[in-house]
Computed example of a mutant assay.
Amino acid sequence: MSDQVSFGYEDVAPEEKTARVGGVFSNVASKYDIMNDAMSGGMHRLWKDQFVRRVKPQPGEAILDMAGGTGDIAFRMSAKGAEVVVADINQDMLDVGIERAMERGIDGLTWSCQNAEELSYPDRHFDAYTIVFGIRNVTHIDRALKEAHRVLKYGGRFFCMEFSTTQWAGFKEAYDLYSHQLMPRIGKAIADDEDSYRYLAESIRRFPKPPVFEGMIRDAGFERTKVEEILGGAVAIHSGWKI
C-alpha cells in the first residue's frame, strides 16, 4: 500500500489519482465559479482578497499561480501590476479562465498547462508562487512543494491557501455535516455532478492538518513558514520563504 495515494477516502495508484482528478475538474470546469459561490456563500471571494493582500504582488514581479485554472487569483494579482503565469494541469479549467479574462478585458496574463510536480520553468525564475485550493488534488504533494521551491528566486515567497478541518466546537460538527451531506447535493443541483463534489469534500478530510502541512513546506526547503487559520482552520493560508 505504500505506493498508493489518497483519492477522497479511497487509496489508489498514483497514476489513477492523476487521471481521476483530471476527470473531476474537466467535469466541473464550466460551473466551478458558480459552485464556489454556492458552497461558500460567497465567502471564497473574501478569502481570496485576504490571500492576495498577504502575497503583496508588486508591479513587474513574475508570479506563478499554480492550479490557477479559472483565473480568480491571477486577476487580482495582475490588477496590482504583477506579471502572472496562470498554470494548471487541466486545460478545461484554463479554457474557462481564458474566456473569463476575455469577457473582463484582462490582458497580459500567460496561460500554461503545467504539472505542479514537473514544472517546465528553469530554476530561480519567479518572485512568488501561489496555489489556492489546489494542492490537495496534487498526486505527490511533496514533489509539488519541492518544485515550487526550485522555481523561486532566492528571497522568493510561497503562498498556499487550502481547506482543512475546523477545530471550533459546534461549528466542526455542522461543517462535517455540510461537507458530506449537502455539498454533493449542491453539486448535483447546480453542476449535475454529485460524485465530483463528494470527492472534493472527502479530499479535504484527507488533507494534512495545518501543522503537518507546515512541516511539509519546511521539508521542501522553505523557511520562516507561517500558518494563518480562518474559521478555526477550515481554511488556512500557508506561507514560506526561499532564503
Rank of each mutant, 00 (worst) to 15 (best):
G215S: 03
T165F: 06
I204G: 06
N27K: 14
A191Q: 10
D195C: 01
H238G: 03
E103L: 11
G155K: 05
H125N: 08
G69Q: 10
R224M: 10
V85F: 13
Q114V: 12
S203L: 06
M35N: 03
A87W: 11
G105M: 06
R224P: 00
F133P: 00
R136I: 10
L145R: 05
L200E: 03
S40R: 10
A189T: 09
S6G: 06
W168A: 11
G71F: 05
R205D: 10
Q58T: 02
R136T: 09
V96Q: 15
K188Q: 15
V235I: 15
M35D: 02
I131F: 04
H238R: 05
R54T: 10
V21L: 08
V96W: 01
V84F: 05
V5L: 05
M43G: 02
D176E: 12
A148D: 00
A236V: 14
M161A: 14
F75T: 06
F25D: 12
F222A: 06
R157H: 12
S40F: 05
F133I: 01
R224H: 13
D37R: 12
C160M: 04
G221C: 08
S179K: 14
D142N: 13
S112W: 08
G81V: 13
A19N: 03
V235T: 12
D127W: 01
E194W: 02
M216C: 03
V52Y: 11
Q114I: 09
P184N: 13
G105C: 06
T130Q: 06
Q167V: 09
M216I: 09
M1N: 08
G134Q: 09
G155D: 02
F25R: 02
D11R: 15
R143V: 00
K48T: 09
A38S: 10
Q50V: 14
D11Y: 15
D107T: 15
V85Y: 08
P208V: 10
E16Q: 14
D176C: 13
K80P: 01
G232R: 07
A148K: 01
L46S: 14
Y121H: 08
I190C: 06
T110Q: 14
Y32G: 04
G187V: 03
V86K: 09
S26E: 04
T130P: 06
A148E: 01
R54N: 04
H125G: 02
I204P: 14
R124C: 11
V235K: 07
R198N: 04
G81N: 07
Q181R: 11
E202T: 00
E103F: 07
M1G: 14
G97N: 08
S239W: 04
H149S: 01
R54F: 10
D72M: 03
